[in-house]
Simulated scan of single mutants.
Amino acid sequence: MGFSQALSGLRAAAINLDVISNNVANSQIVGFKSSRAQFADIYANAEVGLGTRLAGVVQDFSDGNIETTDRGLDLAVSGKGFFRFESAGEIIYSRNGQLTMDRSGYLTNASGARLTGYPAGIDFGGQPQVMQIPSVGLPAYATNSIQATFNMDTRSAIVNRGAVPFDPANANSYSYTNSVTLYDSLGTPHQSQMYFTKTAINTWEVRLVRDNEVAPEIGQLTFDGNGLLDSTSGLDAFTFAPPNGSDPMTVSMELEGSTQFANEFELAEIFQDGYVSGTLMQVNINELGEIVGTYSNEQERVLGTIALANFQSLEGLQPAGDNGWRETTESGQPIVSVPGQGQFGNIMAGAVEASNVDLTQELVAMIIAQRNYQANAQSIKSQDEALQTTMQLR
């Protein structure tokens, strides 16, 4: 009698129920991917088939919905790519981007695996490294450049430099002044003044004074007949010798866009690149996977970039538990890059990728699997009744 066919059907239905139940149990798990049991018949050249067997369990790697959390270290990949984690020397790939920063500055998931990427200064394309946020602060940076845009009042009187030497205390020795704060290599701020003196038609003398120390260099601006800046000279190296032990300072001035019109003196914009030292206050991650540190001195620095990986055959990945997978020979070697490059999606911070399990579909599949189990059980019952009838023949 054909009990074996019905028994194989019972086993298949039970396995199918196990797979469906696992999907339902993980339907609310971030980054979880649902699975489907695939079955094949057993024939082996028999006149009647010998039943069914499990051909494999295949995972569905379609994207889940993106859900916002408003937590900066919750990350989702919008598109292709897996986060790459290192755990006990093993590389694990996951779509679960719920991260925390431990006391050593490592970005880890709930299992303690550490996120990998490219630290600042490391070129993309090499071997990703474990990402560690540096605990040291940002050192002070001496001012090297002043970028500003002015309008010089062409109506100003020409100052005869031979008769009136430059003197910051004498307002008649210059035409216009404006202030700027400069920083030395120790981060000490210095109140400084930029002085502009009209020395000829369309020609202006430029001086820079730091804490009453007059730089020996003299710059020059020349405007054309339309009031536009025609040329500059001597603006690339105003030197100072701070007395507080900091390094000597060399400051350039970039005044592109300045004009000479018959309007009041006006400062349109100004920027200098120096700053005091600062401590790390906050870490954010942008859509390109760049880990951006914000410091107490209002500076921002890219501390590293998250690495993403993808595979030629996702179905060949081996589940590793904890929402992770391992590469196998069937999956092929990982393709590693950074978010937003090539085939890889962008990073969404403050969001996570929900499970791609469709509960409605799973519950319907569970009913079908249950009915299939009952049908195979009924088949065994029918086989048993037929066998009893045969044994009762006289």
Rank of each mutant, 00 (worst) to 15 (best):
T203S: 11
P243A: 14
G293V: 15
G345D: 04
N286I: 11
S8R: 02
T181E: 11
D358I: 06
G340P: 09
D273L: 02
Q147H: 04
P119Y: 14
D102F: 11
M281R: 06
R155A: 13
F61M: 13
P242C: 07
T203E: 10
S277C: 10
N96L: 11
Q282I: 08
G79N: 02
A12G: 12
N45S: 14
T149H: 02
E353H: 06
A44M: 09
Q333F: 01
T232H: 03
N372L: 07
E266N: 05
E217G: 02
G187E: 09
P134M: 11
R210F: 12
T360H: 09
S252F: 05
A14N: 12
L359Q: 05
D184Y: 14
E330P: 01
S87W: 03
A200I: 07
A351K: 08
V48R: 09
Y43E: 09
V57N: 02
V292N: 07
A110I: 13
R371V: 03
G321F: 14
D167T: 08
M366H: 02
R371T: 01
I92Y: 00
T222E: 07
Q98K: 13
G342T: 12
D60A: 06
Y141T: 03
D224Q: 12
I92C: 01
Q383Y: 02
Y373P: 02
F196T: 00
S78G: 07
G49T: 05
D70R: 02
E90M: 10
V58H: 09
Y106M: 14
S135I: 09
G72N: 14
T232P: 04
M249A: 04
V276S: 15
